[in-house]
């Protein structure tokens, strides 16, 4: 039997080694991890002070490109954050929402509803899953998502989601040690999850856009529907109103719009469809100018959408104006300045 003193010495040495090891490990992770805007933006959400976000937006890329909390801050003075990623899996959306609501108590939650029709195949969408998950801190919610993904696709390992280095380890080949510096995930975002794009695709609406075709609407995907219902239930439990949102997108139909409206009514939440004729007119969307591609607004479109949507939210939910609140003003005004500069808007 070894003596106590010796035993404690060994224990301390092991702990010290584990610490040193973890340091190297996270350093290497930061060096090799693939950084997407989405993971950075999703991660920077943790940098927002507790209970400081008035509107929380969750969903896929149309939100990421199309909704700018900074524009709404400037115009109406309420705060918002977009936790969006390209083709966000319904499970990830739910996890992000549930996790966010532990630290924030928004006045409204806005869920992008387009993906309710989408069959989400985990085996085909690893990249999109990573975009959503790599920026998310470890939590029971994240573990639930990981379990669901790895059960559906046994090629993917849970370990590689817990330690992303296990997934990106082969990138040592691409790294130039002289050039590339370890880059931790973003801690503070000036654009609050809105990664805008300047390009203008110069598109036109397809023929008969948003006109009834007489065809039945496609069916909802059962999993997606279940997760949206779960999200709504969670918000109801916390007494937070939910808006199901559809942002301008050329691949959308009258029938789909009606189906989601019915779904919203059944679940007792508000549905807002920005492709409906009456909303489009008010927004003043010009298809030749405001689209980045068929599915996403460009910067110009996003500013139009955000101005209109901000007003709509502000009026409907009587959101607070923090512009003169010293607890907000400094940080948010500085972020606005940077956003305006990067976006080329007037300060």
């Amino acid at each position: 039997m070894m003596g106590w003193k010796k035993g404690i010495g060994i224990m301390l040495r092991c702990i010290a080694f584990v610490l040193v090891f973890s340091m190297f490990f996270s350093h290497t992770t930061n060096l090799l991890m693939r950084h997407d805007d989405e993971s950075n933006e999703i991660h920077a959400f943790y940098g927002e002070p507790e209970d400081s976000i008035d509107v929380l937006y969750i969903g896929s890329s149309p939100l990421l490109r199309g909704v700018s909390p900074m524009v709404m801050w400037k115009e109406y003075g309420f705060t918002g954050y977009v936790r969006a990623s390209a083709l966000q899996a319904p499970a990830v959306s739910y996890g992000l929402l549930a996790e966010s609501l532990r630290k924030q108590s928004p006045k409204v939650v806005v869920l992008l509803c387009d993906n309710i029709f989408l069959e989400y195949d985990y085996t085909e969408r690893e990249g999109d899953l990573r975009r959503g998950l790599d920026g998310m801190k470890m939590s029971l919610y994240k573990l639930d998502i990981i379990r669901e993904v790895t059960e559906a696709d046994e090629r993917q390992s849970a370990l590689s989601y817990v330690f992303p280095l296990m997934r990106y380890h082969e990138r040592w080949k691409e790294i130039d040690l002289a050039e590339d510096k370890p880059e931790p995930l973003l801690e503070h975002s000036f654009q609050k999850g809105n990664v805008f794009l300047g390009y203008n695709a110069g598109l036109d609406y397809p023929e008969g856009f948003m006109q009834p075709t007489g065809q039945p609407a496609p069916a909802f995907n059962a999993d997606a529907q279940a997760y949206i219902e779960k999200s709504i239930a969670l918000c109801r439990e916390k007494d937070i109103p939910v808006v199901l949102l559809h942002l301008p997108k050329m691949a959308w139909s009258f029938e789909e719009s009606m189906a989601v409206e019915q779904f919203a009514a059944d679940n007792g939440v508000v549905y807002l469809d920005l492709d409906r004729e009456e909303n489009r007119t008010q927004l003043g969307i010009v298809p030749q100018e405001d689209y980045y591609d068929k599915g996403h607004m460009n910067l110009r479109g996003s500013v139009k959408v955000s101005r209109w949507l901000g007003k709509w939210l502000d009026e409907r939910y009587a959101l607070p104006d923090h512009r003169d609140d010293p607890a907000y003003a400094e940080s948010w005004n500085a972020d606005w300045a940077e956003y305006a500069r990067k976006a080329g808007l007037e300060e």
Binding site: F25, T28, E126, S160, L165, M166, R167, H169, E170, W172
Partner: peptide, 9 residues
């Protein structure tokens, strides 16, 4: 092992 090991997807 972690970096140069051949493993994963």
């Amino acid at each position: 092992l972690v970096l140069f090991g051949v493993y994963g997807l």
